[in-house]
Design a protein around this nucleic acid. Structure first.
Lengths: 108, 108
DNA sequence: AATACATATGAATAGTTGTTCATATGTTAA
DNA sequence: TTAACATATGAACAACTATTCATATGTATT
């Protein structure tokens, strides 16, 4: 493998892109959000039920959903009083699975 | 898609696994660590040079490397006074690329 | 219109994280 | 063995994050 210890600039991505990427990854950097996202794989679930399943308050779940919405990891559809959330991006599912693979690697 | 709003427990992963996974993902949830990891794709780089490239203090880089080591995202080899770091896991590379894909999705 | 239900949001707070500064450890060369 | 270089680490602090609590908004039912 190439070894570098001085000289030319190696950086291939802008600081701005790094910040944007990190904001996306932060979303899967919290265990409650991870559990929430796993619940949403192949299903849509309303807020109340998410809170119940996760053992979190309605308010806490709602705050987290706002973050996940902002980063476009989840989307929703309304149905009367209820709002059903689901994953917004296949990449999310892929990333969750790769994380599990990495855990296996760590256990070796 | 299946719609769920009450009843059976849907959870497929333990809380412990979620915490462990989130600790792994936290590592890519910081822009400086992301830039650092990108620098290490296909290269090994010593601490001093990493600090220089990232515009960070030696101490700050060293602290971050400790975290990345603990979570097994990077490994190192010593060579005299210098210590060369490199990625410890193909999954890390994959995850970084998927993140970029997701950014494209967001820009639509 | 009034009530109950479902979700969202702002403010406050406790806990976490990343950096700096000072210093320690380890290695090489003189 | 002293000096210079390379890296690591502990403590302190500022910035950020996740939750709670109180309340607001929106929808359906009576």
């Amino acid at each position: 493998m190439k070894r570098c210890d001085e000289g030319a600039n190696l950086e291939i991505m802008t600081h701005e892109d790094a910040i944007e990427l990190s904001e996306f990854y932060k979303m899967v950097g919290d265990s409650n959000r991870i559990r929430l996202l796993y619940l949403l794989i192949d299903k849509e679930i309303c807020v109340h039920h998410l809170a119940e399943q996760l053992g979190m308050s309605q308010s806490a779940v709602s705050h987290q959903l706002r973050l996940l919405r902002q980063q476009r990891l989840v989307k929703y559809t309304k149905d009367g009083k209820k709002i059903y959330y689901s994953l917004d991006d296949e990449h999310v599912k892929t990333i969750l699975n790769i994380g599990l693979e990495h855990l296996k690697h760590r256990e070796e």
